[in-house]
Simulated assay, not measured.
Amino acid sequence: MKVQIERKNTEYLLEATGVSGNTVMIDHSGMETVRGVSPMELLLMGVGSCSAIDIIAILKKQRQDITSYKVEVTGERYELDDSKPFKSMHVIVLLEGDINPDKAQKAADLSFEKYCSVSKSFDKCVEITYEVKVN
């Protein structure tokens, strides 16, 4: 896997391009005008979207009818020398539709404990908790 990142102005605005050719704008969150997401926000987005893909795929195989899927991811950071890495993340999966809550919970368990490569990448350094709310 490989991505490319190119500076797009004279400040901190960056454009990241994946192998698919799709792009994401990244910027410094401390700027007066922010035109992209911060690198730390990207980490939260990565955890939320990776688990979303898993959960949706599992529920589709079980013929659950998802009419709305939203996810909220919050991260708690701490001071470490001159940086502020994540200490923990909490994910709230918000589902609507004709969905069995037990199946939704099992899908989330499988995602976070087995399939989601992004959250598994944080296993040894960031505590990730999650909850599922149906309808």
Rank of each mutant, 00 (worst) to 15 (best):
M1E: 12
M1W: 11
K2T: 13
Q4N: 15
I5Y: 07
I5D: 08
R7T: 10
E11C: 00
E15L: 12
E15C: 14
E15K: 14
E15T: 13
T17R: 12
G21W: 09
G21A: 03
N22W: 06
N22R: 08
T23V: 15
T23A: 13
V24M: 15
I26C: 03
D27N: 05
H28A: 04
S29R: 03
G30E: 09
M31C: 01
M31G: 01
E32P: 00
E32T: 02
V34L: 01
V34S: 00
M40Q: 10
M40W: 02
L42Y: 12
L44C: 05
M45P: 05
G46Q: 06
G48N: 05
G48I: 04
S49V: 11
S49C: 14
S49T: 15
C50D: 10
C50E: 10
A52D: 08
I53E: 07
D54R: 08
D54G: 03
I55V: 12
I55Q: 12
A57R: 07
L59E: 04
L59H: 06
K60H: 11
K61S: 15
Q62P: 02
Q64R: 06
I66P: 03
T67A: 07
S68Y: 10
V71E: 02
E72I: 14
E72Q: 14
G75S: 06
E76Y: 01
R77W: 07
R77T: 11
Y78S: 09
Y78K: 12
E79I: 09
L80W: 08
D81P: 00
D82Q: 14
K84A: 12
K84Y: 13
P85D: 00
F86K: 00
L95I: 05
G97K: 03
D98S: 11
I99L: 02
N100G: 03
N100T: 10
K103P: 11
K106T: 13
K106M: 06
A107P: 04
A107F: 11
A107Y: 05
A108Y: 09
S111G: 11
S111T: 04
K114G: 01
Y115T: 01
K120E: 10
S121V: 02
F122A: 10
D123K: 12
K124M: 01
C125R: 06
T129N: 03
Y130N: 10
E131W: 08
V132N: 03
K133M: 11
K133H: 14
K133N: 14
N135Q: 03
N135K: 04
